[in-house]
Computed example of a mutant assay.
Amino acid sequence: MPTLDVHGTALHYRDEGHGPPVLLFHAFPLHSGAFDAQVKALASRYRFLLPDVRGLGQGAPPSGPTEMAHIAQDALALLDALGLDSVVVGGVSMGGYASMALLREDPSRVRGLVLVDTQAGADDEAGRARREASAEQALREGPEAVVRAMLPRLVAAGPDSEVGREVAALMRAATPEGLAAAQRGMALRPDSKDILARYAGPALVVVGEQDGITPVEKARQMAELVTGAHLEIIPGAAHLPNQEQPEAFNAVLERFLSRL
């Protein structure tokens, strides 16, 4: 996995495939390996840029909360280093928050937007409190606490399924500090409805039919904010459709990319 020095911090990322560039941000608490099925199916036609968020996967240790703007700024530094003026930007869950943060930072870099099982709103007070409790538990108990709490809600097939075991392995690559920093960073994110309402480019919104974390209604609300956005609901998937139903997800993603 190559690295890029960003203000003294090593940004670990994957650069896979050939063709129009697509920057994808992974979900919490996973890492860039979550997009293996997309790389395998589509890398002959698209170039995937897949950073690991700090403290997750091979991401460098975080320094303070991993705010969504920081993830976006790391990615913009990567685009600068690779000489890429604009790319398709997308992400799953927390990766969707990071995508909207990048859109806020520099909309000129976003050729197309892909938002997967995420939401535009900020956390309310109760949500921020839950994130802080999760952060403190991760620091005390490590990734296993997060696996126990989150995995049953992430995959429709359940923790003991093949995809459930794959997701658990991705989660266990996180450090306790990275888990806590990401939770605290997500708690600080602003509402992004204004950013989506101003966005004038092509957009794809995807949601798992069985997602109980960011359900279909929240996906509809995002799609309604972006003029001309296309909404796709993936059957048989909960919060991670790109991993749970990769063939269906890849078909949806490729249709969108091929029209740009």
Rank of each mutant, 00 (worst) to 15 (best):
A122S: 01
G142M: 01
A75I: 06
H70Y: 03
S108R: 15
G91E: 14
S93R: 15
P143I: 07
Q58Y: 09
R130I: 10
G121D: 02
Q137I: 08
A120I: 06
G95R: 11
L84P: 11
A69F: 04
L115V: 04
A101M: 10
A81W: 05
A72N: 12
A72F: 07
V87R: 08
A60F: 02
D106S: 15
A129N: 01
L84E: 10
G95N: 09
V155Q: 01
R104G: 07
G64I: 03
M150A: 03
V116R: 10
E141L: 06
G83A: 09
Q137F: 08
D106M: 15
T118E: 07
V88S: 12
L151G: 11
S86E: 15
V116K: 08
L82P: 04
G142A: 06
G90N: 10
D74H: 07
R109A: 12
L151I: 15
D106F: 11
P107K: 15
R153V: 03
A75L: 00
D85V: 13
L76C: 09
V92I: 14
D74K: 01
A77T: 00
L102S: 03
D124F: 02
A156S: 14
L82A: 04
D106Q: 13
V89Q: 12
M150N: 05
S63K: 02
G142N: 06
D74P: 04
L113T: 12
L78S: 04
V114E: 00
A98H: 00
T66W: 00
Q73K: 14
S86M: 13
E136G: 09
A122H: 08
G64D: 07
R104T: 10
P65N: 06
E144R: 15
A69V: 12
A101L: 10
G95E: 10
Q137E: 02
P152W: 13
G121R: 07
P62Y: 04
G57L: 01
R111C: 11
A133K: 02
G90E: 03
A122N: 05
R148K: 10
A126D: 00
V88C: 12
G127S: 10
M150H: 06
R128L: 11
G64R: 02
P107A: 15
V146H: 00
S93F: 14
A149W: 02
V114W: 03
G64K: 09
A101H: 14
S93C: 14
L103D: 08
L79C: 05
V147K: 01
A129K: 07
E144G: 13
I71W: 08
L76I: 05
A77G: 06
E141D: 02
V89W: 09
L151N: 15
T66N: 08
R109W: 12
Y97P: 14
G142V: 07
S134V: 05
L78A: 03
A135D: 09
S99R: 11
G95I: 08
L78R: 07
Q58P: 04
P62M: 01
G90R: 05
R104V: 10
A72W: 08
G127L: 01
Q73S: 12
M150L: 06
A138C: 14
G83I: 09
R109F: 10
V155N: 03
H70C: 02
V89I: 13
A81M: 05
S86F: 09
A120P: 10
V116L: 11
R128E: 13
G127W: 00
R128P: 14
G55F: 00
A72R: 09
V110G: 00
S93V: 12
L56A: 01
R109V: 13
P152Q: 06
A75N: 03
V87N: 10
E67L: 11
L102D: 04
